[in-house]
Write a protein that binds this DNA or RNA. Structure first.
Lengths: 199, 199
DNA sequence: GTCTATAATTCGATAGAC
DNA sequence: GTCTATCGAATTATAGAC
């Protein structure tokens, strides 16, 4: 099992650029695209290598296995904005807007969601992101740890549900929504899940 | 490509029960369980046949192909309650409660969501359910057809997001929610998506 | 109706020449 | 570092005996 924690940011600052870095980046780009479009099983190493215009055996050389390639391709860090610095009533809008920005920035999140939903192993990877990155952020905003978990789960359900219908399932009315409409509709919902008293 | 529209309700009223019907039902049960747990690719005909305690070749004989088996296994009809007969302010709660009931009733919807998210072909099947069953129901409640589509998409995003985090990804805080909590939290959201003026 | 045997592919992974 | 060739395993699907 590959160590996904060793991969952090896509643009590692240290180490002088080796000649193989561009090849490596091309493989990761192609892999993200294929995993996002086809899911884990149907995204074959052969097809990814063809997209990246290299030999399939090179993928194995760089990443060891298909699992290792996937782990490297979907290594994400959800950079959440500092919510405590905002006026209380702007938190919902800000969170939704930030979420949309990062989702449309690249295909990592779509790939992660598609694979995460498609298999048990993928689901555990998404559980890890939620546990290690989303929950701690929620605890920073909400003091009661039990309530923080519930509220984070509700917000995740709403935001991931939008991503699911818009970017994965591609329901036409969900795709047609503008960024402004999404913020206007979902902002108050997220705001309520985060700040309203427990019913 | 199998004709999924020919399969409607799991309990067809016509035709006297043939001797093979129990075998057929056992295969479908096992298939739903495997598809829900493992996704489309990893749910092999061999494993499904083993669960159903029959020979793998029988699956082919009954359903023609793996695609045909899947189509038969996830043939669902979303029976939506008659919302027009309710007091306006109870619509949200009713819809959420109804949704939860049907989702926990069996594994069809989890299988459909897991496979739908995992591949393009599965996504198109979910688009079909949304287009043929959810949208018409939304138009019955909301007169403006364009608004009906938008509101239906927002509600689908919220409800499918809950199913995703609770039944597929299994985020612990989402699993821990009680039925009452879900209705209390999501009811007002759905209510607003359905009845609030367009922002 | 049921099962055995197997065809025909396809994939991940490896070995080794250059 | 790059590529050719290939192994071994697993799958869907078919053909045909009983």
């Amino acid at each position: 099992m590959p160590d996904s924690t060793s991969e952090t940011s896509p643009s590692a600052p240290a180490a002088p650029a080796r000649r193989s870095d561009s090849t490596r980046a091309a493989i990761l780009d192609a892999a993200r695209e294929r995993f996002a479009a086809d899911g884990y099983e149907r995204a074959t190493i052969r097809a990814i290598a063809r997209d990246a215009k290299i030999d399939p055996s090179m993928v194995m050389r760089y990443f060891g296995s298909k699992d290792g390639l996937f782990a490297a391709a979907v290594a994400v860090d959800i950079r959440l904005p500092d919510l405590s610095a905002l006026p209380r009533h702007e938190v919902g809008h800000t969170l939704v807007a930030h979420f949309l920005d990062h989702w449309e920035e690249n295909e990592v999140l779509t790939a992660l969601l598609r694979v995460g939903a498609g298999s048990q192993a993928g689901a555990e990877r998404m559980q890890g992101v939620f546990r290690d990155q989303v929950l701690p952020a929620a605890r920073r905003v909400c003091p009661d740890p039990e309530q923080a978990a519930t509220r984070a789960a509700l917000i995740a359900a709403q935001l991931l549900g939008l991503s699911l219908t818009r970017y994965v399932l591609r329901f036409p009315p969900a795709v047609a929504l503008t960024r402004q409409e999404i913020v206007a509709w979902l902002g108050p919902t997220v705001q309520r899940y985060l700040t309203a008293p427990h019913p």
